[in-house]
Design a protein around this nucleic acid. Sequence first.
DNA 1: TAGATTGTTAATCGATTAACAATC
DNA 2: TAGATTGTTAATCGATTAACAATC
Lengths: 209, 209
Amino acid sequence: MKKENISDAVIRRLPRYYRRLTDLYHRGIVRISSHSLGEELNITASQIRQDFSCFGEFGQQGYGYNVEELRAEIGHILGVDHNHHLIMIGVGNLGHALLLNFPFSQTGFTVDAAFDVSPAVVNTTVNGIPVLSSGELDEFIANHPVDVVVLTVPQSIAQETADHLIGLGVKGFWNFTNIELTSTSPSVQFENIHFADSLLTLSYRILNC
Amino acid sequence: MKKENISDAVIRRLPRYYRRLTDLYHRGIVRISSHSLGEELNITASQIRQDFSCFGEFGQQGYGYNVEELRAEIGHILGVDHNHHLIMIGVGNLGHALLLNFPFSQTGFTVDAAFDVSPAVVNTTVNGIPVLSSGELDEFIANHPVDVVVLTVPQSIAQETADHLIGLGVKGFWNFTNIELTSTSPSVQFENIHFADSLLTLSYRILNC
DNA sequence: TAGATTGTTAATCGATTAACAATC
DNA sequence: TAGATTGTTAATCGATTAACAATC
């Protein structure tokens, strides 16, 4: 299963394949060729076959790929069946929106708790998830190992919060603050949602493309 | 100013340069070399100089770059001084969070209005921005030209909403729905925030890296 | 002046695309 | 069987890195 040297570009295409295959599956489509799959995603058939061949042989000559099987394989590669444990730090407007709307469970994550400093939200629940006081964080993690933290805190405390959590054993951060987080430990993974960077690239493109 | 063949990789690095330079500027740092700038961003000095040279000559041999000037140049390239007009379609939890927290004006955008179908939000204002009924959309755009739409609607109506807006002349979409939007017109730009894709790549990396 | 650092050209590296034998 | 399509190897393309003359 574990392959080395999978490039970031390949990894970022996997969720798109998974998304499209899920759609095809729900529409009752049984088989698909690399050519057809690529057409819908604007990816060449060659690249799709190269990408899949990093992980195994999922197709059949003359037939193509079975949609349900391929979806399951890619889902497994991405870890949707892994049940990661996740907590959220910072329950402001954005944190709230994610807790209410984001399908964590479909993505392989269980949200165990959320944390905030504001008395207005501490000891409430949001979509069934308890919001605890930040003071309870260390004890909580000691009793409930956490794989990933959703970081929806103010920018000013983002790096120090991350450092503290890394010390408690957290290995992954879904970072919604607009800074580049760093860690001395190479096994810690950061995935950034940089809203401003994203909108700026759109600004550039509507002016120049 | 307008250069052809700027690769997507270059464009996506520009906001990171801009962000770092803004930080340096606020810290009162006057000059920086490509080497120092790269160290903080994990980008080689060579690549930084290559990137900048797509747009002009902003440095000085033996000295490096003036932080304030370089920040202004890159900001200008990205269009932060352009004052794009923007509206939001769909004022749910996520839309609300963006209206309340996202610094649109710092990014070169003016939010003129938001639209929704729910009587619970129509005719309210959020952070000073009027929320109008979706029925008023066509007339509004006829009177207030719109460059970019923030698409925070349910997935099921995303493509049809986009098609309608493209017909009304909208050229850019900041798409928060988890589907790939398409357009027959090549001048229409889509910038996607695919939350689920993002979290899935994190899932993959904590399992494999 | 000497040291530092640019902008740019050339070299390298990696990712994408094309081609094709294997085979369902 | 004949047609279709895979997985993989080879060719191409583009992006990154290295090198260096120019010069502040």
